[in-house]
Design a protein around this nucleic acid. Structure first.
Ligand SMILES: [Mn+2]
Ligand SMILES: [Mn+2]
Ligand SMILES: [Mn+2]
Ligand SMILES: [Mn+2]
Lengths: 227, 227
DNA sequence: ATAATAATTTAGGCTTGTCTAAAAATTTTT
DNA sequence: AAAAATTTTTAGACAAGCCTAAATTATTAT
């Protein structure tokens, strides 16, 4: 019998990694500092708990934090956040490409797998998958060095009549939304010709892959990224 | 942004799973109840901490426990322990077969991966690997229903002169031991003809794959399982 | 410029899993 | 069968991460 659960204490806890990742996402969503309340909402905790954690992350120099002034990742904090996001997205590719899970199923499992701490594991997995550039939702995979590739997509809701575009990603990642896309045939990579835009509800009428015509609500169109 | 770390609270913690697994292994190692001290040693904690956990596991009906009398898994506890061991060994096969890790490297990562909680994940992974029967160390993989296949191997130290056997597994799993086997060419599956046994130190002289001759210490021979 | 409202932090507690030191039970030795 | 030694449990603490309630600071409205 040998060293069953002797694990060297990791540098950062799951919880810390999740906070960093969440701060990264909220920072990307809008300019300026991230607020305590928005973090509480995203992490499904209370503002008081977030305050505690922010103090701790600031002590560890992972965030810039002045009381009541919101929060911003330090370089080190961003490096760590991108590492977690890289692991998450690589695992999503594995689950989707190799194990045959649907794009609506992979996120939940990746939320756990992203915390497995082995540089070599994610490196070998990356190679095994052929160094994918994007995850199953079209999101770019950060480089091993911790750089997030820039992507410039528009929302389908912003495309003008007559243009033909390709579905490149989604903004909304809920299983419900993704299953709805599956049902209507709006998969990643499919070509979409915008035929008409309804001026009242801003729904769009589109032709998919030069075949069937479809009505897409603005709610859906706003969450579809196209080339 | 969507449900980042909203995880449904799992039935059993990592820690509980590790205790159950450890109790299983210690039970297999010798007859009778498992002692508090042996658990403390295996889990690299103190006896006091083990006592606390045993009380909790007993409350959850996962172990039979009478104070000062040692401990034994209930049916439910054994079912859970075997589930964890199954996940551990399937992940080890993945790491070894698909990602190319050595058998001396896989255990540590599997210690983390074994706690990923998704029935469907391990089921799909099992299928992806072609339903392996044994892990990279020759240990049998428990069935999905929670049954540990019986295997009947001898130790190389017990083989009589003139017999030819095949290496089927290892009892010791430390990277040091496994690397030593790699170095001497004693891989899983290789054929071993016992040519001589030294009566003093019980080391054995063996011929490997009908080729080179090798001296194997009793320490090593005791930890090699052969057909 | 206050007053009211909203956001954030602090205070004090709880749970899990760990620890050390002390008490209690069991086992071994004499 | 006692005494000594060992094993196990209990008592009391602590860190991480969470909570509610109260206090504080910032923002918005009057
Ligand atoms: Mn995801
Ligand atoms: Mn994704
Ligand atoms: Mn192992
Ligand atoms: Mn193994």
């Amino acid at each position: 019998m040998d060293r069953l659960q002797i694990r060297p204490k990791p540098m950062h806890s799951f919880t810390e990694e999740n906070y960093l990742k969440t701060i990264y996402y909220l920072s990307a969503r809008q300019e300026g500092e991230v607020t305590t309340n928005s973090l509480a909402e995203m992490t499904a905790t209370k503002a008081a708990s977030v305050s505690d954690m922010l103090r701790k992350l600031a002590e560890k120099q992972l965030i810039h934090y002045k009381k009541y002034q919101g929060v911003r990742l330090t370089e080190e904090g961003e490096r760590l956040a991108l590492k977690v996001i890289r692991r998450h997205r690589i695992w999503e590719v594995f689950l989707s490409e190799k194990l045959g899970f649907g794009w609506d199923e992979v996120h939940e499992m990746a939320e756990e797998l992203e915390h497995i701490r082995s540089e070599e594991l994610v490196q070998k997995l990356d190679a095994f998958l052929g160094y994918p550039q994007f995850d199953p939702h079209g999101d770019p995979i950060p480089s091993p060095a911790g750089h997030m590739p820039a992507v410039e997509y528009s929302k389908l809701s912003e495309v003008t009549i007559g243009e033909e575009v390709q579905v490149m990603g989604v903004l909304e990642h809920s299983p419900e939304f993704l299953q709805h896309l599956d049902k209507t045939g709006l998969n990643l990579g499919c070509r979409v010709l915008v035929q008409d835009v309804n001026v009242f509800d801003k729904s769009v009428s589109v032709q998919i892959n030069h075949e069937k015509t479809l009505f897409v609500s603005n709610e859906v169109a706003r969450n579809l990224l196209v080339n």
